Simulated scan of single mutants.
Amino acid sequence: MGVGLLGVVLPGLPTVVFLLMAAWCAGKGWPALEDWLLNHPHWGLSIRNWRVYGAVPRKAKVLASIMMSMSLILLWLSAIHLYWQFALTLVLASVLLWLWLRPELSQEN
């Protein structure tokens, strides 16, 4: 978790990947935390929908799309080699396609 938090302020160090790994490990090693997250009034339904159906809420899809688009704009404005600009654009486009193909469930499920 500490490495993930460092990623918030250090460029180039991923944040989300380390926080997801920390959450997964904590859920496996700390059943009370997993129960708390699954029954949480705000996050519980989204976590259960992801586990059972692989569903992602539309709001999360839109927010991810906006953030990836902003990242691509900054990438193409940077001085990074053209090869990396195309490669990273392809990777992000693939992730967006995968994300938008995930099912959406209503918040009442």
Rank of each mutant, 00 (worst) to 15 (best):
G2Y: 13
V3P: 02
V3L: 08
G4I: 00
L5Q: 03
L5V: 09
L5P: 01
G7Y: 06
V8R: 13
V8Q: 12
V8P: 02
V9E: 01
L10M: 11
L10N: 04
G12D: 03
G12Y: 09
G12F: 06
L13P: 02
P14D: 01
P14F: 00
V17I: 12
F18D: 12
L19R: 06
L20H: 05
L20Q: 11
L20M: 14
L20K: 10
M21S: 10
M21F: 12
M21C: 11
A22R: 00
A26N: 01
G27T: 12
G27I: 05
K28N: 06
G29A: 02
G29D: 07
G29Q: 07
G29W: 04
W30L: 12
W30H: 08
P31L: 04
P31G: 02
E34T: 08
E34M: 07
D35S: 13
D35L: 10
L37E: 00
L37K: 00
L37Q: 01
H40K: 03
P41G: 03
P41I: 03
H42M: 10
W43Y: 07
G44V: 00
S46H: 12
S46T: 06
R48E: 06
W50L: 08
V52Y: 07
V52I: 10
Y53E: 14
Y53V: 08
G54D: 08
G54T: 04
G54A: 05
A55I: 00
P57C: 01
R58E: 07
K61S: 03
L63P: 07
L63F: 14
A64C: 02
A64E: 03
S65C: 02
S65Y: 00
I66K: 01
M68F: 09
M68H: 04
M70S: 13
M70P: 04
M70T: 13
L72W: 05
L72Y: 03
L74D: 08
L74N: 10
L75T: 04
L75E: 03
S78P: 02
S78Q: 04
A79G: 15
I80E: 07
L82M: 13
L82Q: 11
Y83L: 15
W84M: 11
W84Q: 12
A87I: 05
L88K: 11
L88G: 14
L90C: 15
L92N: 14
S94C: 14
S94Q: 13
V95A: 14
L96M: 15
L96F: 11
L99H: 10
L101H: 14
L101T: 15
L101V: 07
R102N: 06
P103R: 05
E104S: 09
E104V: 10
L105I: 08
L105R: 15
S106E: 15
Q107C: 05
N109M: 09
N109Y: 13
